[in-house]
Amino acid sequence: MSQAPAGSTETPDEDESSSRRRILNATAEVLGRSGQTKLSLSEVALQAGVSRPTLYRWFASKTELLDAFGVYEREMFDTGISRATAGLRGTDKLDAALQFIVAYQQTYSGVRLIDVEPEVVVAQLSRILPLMRSRLERLLSGPNAGLKAATAIRIAVSHYVVRSDDADQFLAQLRHAVGIKQ
């Protein structure tokens, strides 16, 4: 186990976790500029403010980094949804989840990979869409829950592919898809 830097108030585990998190956050920034095929581990290390040996201690290869980044993004999204919906029930919980989806797409820098490498994103959609649908479907009830979830996810993906700066319209479309009356 490594030592925390001199004068640091972090424990070694916190420092290591912080380095890993900085690397994963930097990966989002570099992906947004370069895409997956041109991703440079040196550029990620520089963006994260860590040495290449530190990056390689966490991620032995570009593939390993990208795999971990995919998991990290899903965890960030799931944690955000959980926080946004904590303590809520029914329609309030569903609406909070939809509001989070809109805010996430409008603010998260890594989400714009479609602008840099559309072919990579399109290839990943067939794997990602069923996951997104099942997660949203858990918040819905009734006989058309699957249809509503699928429609809302397709709206979210269309807003991702063809970005709109109108968050209110995006949210209104999601609410309409799942049957929330305003």
Rank of each mutant, 00 (worst) to 15 (best):
A97H: 05
I101T: 13
Y108M: 00
A123T: 15
Q124R: 07
R112C: 05
L113V: 09
V122A: 14
V116P: 14
E117H: 04
Q99I: 02
E117L: 05
V122Q: 12
L125C: 03
V111C: 07
L94N: 06
V116C: 12
L113Q: 14
V116T: 15
V120C: 03
D115Q: 09
I114W: 01
D115I: 00
Q105H: 04
T107F: 01
E119W: 00
I101N: 08
Q105P: 03
A123I: 07
Q105N: 13
I114A: 09
A97I: 06
L113P: 05
D95V: 13
D115P: 00
Q99D: 13
S109L: 06
V111K: 03
S126Q: 13
V111P: 02
S126N: 13
G110A: 05
V120N: 08
E119H: 08
P118V: 01
E117S: 08
V111Q: 11
T107M: 05
L125E: 05
F100H: 13
Q124P: 02
V122G: 10
S126T: 15
Q99K: 15
Q99C: 11
V102R: 02
L94P: 02
F100K: 06
G110N: 05
F100Y: 15
Q106N: 14
D95Y: 12
I101K: 02
A96Y: 08
Y108L: 00
V121S: 04
E119K: 13
F100S: 11
A97C: 14
T107L: 06
L98T: 09
T107A: 08
S109C: 05
R112I: 01
V116R: 12
F100I: 10
V116K: 14
T107P: 04
V122T: 15
Q99L: 05
A96T: 14
T107N: 12
A97P: 06
A123S: 10
V102Y: 02
A103E: 12
A123K: 10
L94S: 08
P118Y: 00
D95L: 11
A123P: 01
A96P: 11
A103I: 09
L98Q: 06
L125G: 03
L113Y: 05
A97G: 13
T107H: 06
A97N: 10
Y104Q: 13
I101W: 02
Y108E: 05
V116H: 07
F100G: 09
V122K: 12
Y108V: 01
L94H: 07
I114H: 03
Q106C: 03
Y104T: 15
Y108A: 01
V102L: 06
Q99E: 14
S109I: 11
A97D: 11
P118F: 00
V111I: 10
